[in-house]
Write a protein that binds this DNA or RNA. Structure first.
Lengths: 223, 223
DNA sequence: TAAAAAATATGAGATATCTCCTATTTTTGA
DNA sequence: TCAAAAATAGGAGATATCTCATATTTTTTA
């Protein structure tokens, strides 16, 4: 992890304005941090001292359960907060956050800014919007998980993560995300290949029947 | 549904202060509404014209999926908002809200108060807290659903809804909540009886081994 | 208050998903 | 750069969960 200093920090902030986020100056104690792929931005169970706001990159939220299973709860993208739960709540089980790509974020020390942030309408309105989207998304994912079999959710996952018609996520990550065993995941993926939806190409999979996958994925959405 | 008028409204508001919620007067266009058990406070897919705040009672959030399955996403309790998503977002799929007990709430017409609410720090801070709890709860439920079999989730549900050692939820509601078929639900419930955790008594079930159920439910929690 | 609808109950067989196992290939770290 | 760790791959059998079917009881409604 690198903390931008002096000129580098200044230049970065000129190119990536955060003026719309707060109505008071935060530069004094604010850091700009860069994490590399697979770095842990926050470790599970360790309360973070900073409120982060992601300017660049992508990350994953993980939680480990008592039965040993690991769940990939969600992805974090640009213009989203990390650590906002700890800002708002004294008691909170902190989830692990791992960078998926190079990730640059600003980091505000909570003990300096907590009170001021919670009085800042600009910040609160932004955060409220962010949280409402997050709550809605989690509710949607929850009810989809309740109501649909793996087939539909896997199709959705493939389409969401595919890049130019090629699916290349790690199977291990997909299993954590879908909450299924590696064995069964391979089984269903092979079925998709047998049905002609996908075609295996080395370690990646080409999407051959977008429409079939899309029909499965569309079932999840509410009209 | 009954709308409290004149003296009744006034008296109710004196006993149930809402002064802590807003920093500007809302009484003029505000209604106080009372719903009976099984009334629909909001119908699925119909955008509500009001922001509700529950003062008394309990309700359920439902969503209907394209495959015909109905999911009971969550319960709404006292001191929670209804319709806040529609306040914040122009495009939003509205879920159905059904009263579970007699439910009294205040109803603010959005088109009168929307702008003012979104500038009110007091309201925003309250709403932010509410949404953060909601997002956290949904994330927890989502990851539990990913990671644990029915047995654990059913134990949790029984303990959460039991009243003085007696479980008496409708099986149909439990199935919607747990996202499983009626047939399988009965199967697992019968197993709990056979193991001695529960004892069937007419249409209700007595909790005979709290510790066994609690051990199953505790697995869901993060320490 | 009788007919219709909803909820409870259970059997039987099909399908989805898991656990355990073993082997090979790829990536990581001392 | 080589040994260890992680990821990929797939077989076999067990368990969880679903679908369909049918019957009875309770609740709702015209």
């Amino acid at each position: 992890m690198e903390i931008y200093q002096g000129k580098k920090k200044q230049l970065y902030l000129e190119k990536n304005s955060i003026a719309h986020l707060f109505s008071f100056p935060v530069e004094e104690f604010m850091e700009v941090r860069e994490y590399q792929r697979d770095d842990w931005i926050i470790q599970e169970g360790m309360r973070p001292a900073f409120l982060f706001y992601v300017l660049e990159g992508k990350a994953k939220i993980y939680i480990t359960h008592q039965n040993g299973k690991v769940s990939l709860i969600n992805f974090i993208n640009e213009n989203e907060y990390i650590g906002e739960m700890e800002l708002l709540h004294d008691v909170y089980y902190t989830k692990g956050i791992q960078a998926l790509t190079k990730t640059v974020c600003i980091a505000l020390p909570m003990h300096y800014y907590r009170t001021k942030l919670l009085e800042d309408t600009k910040f609160l309105r932004e955060l409220t919007r962010f949280l409402s989207v997050k709550a809605t998304l989690m509710a949607a994912k929850y009810s989809q998980l309740l109501a649909f079999p793996l087939e539909n959710r896997l199709a959705d996952f493939i389409l969401q993560t595919a890049d130019e018609g090629v699916y290349k996520e790690k199977h291990v990550v997909a299993c954590d995300y879908l909450g299924i065993s590696y064995r069964h995941f391979m089984h269903v993926l092979t079925q998709f290949c047998n049905k002609g939806y996908l075609q295996k190409e080395g370690r990646t999979y080409l999407i051959k029947q977008f429409n079939s996958l899309d029909a499965l994925a569309e079932m999840l959405k509410n009209k």
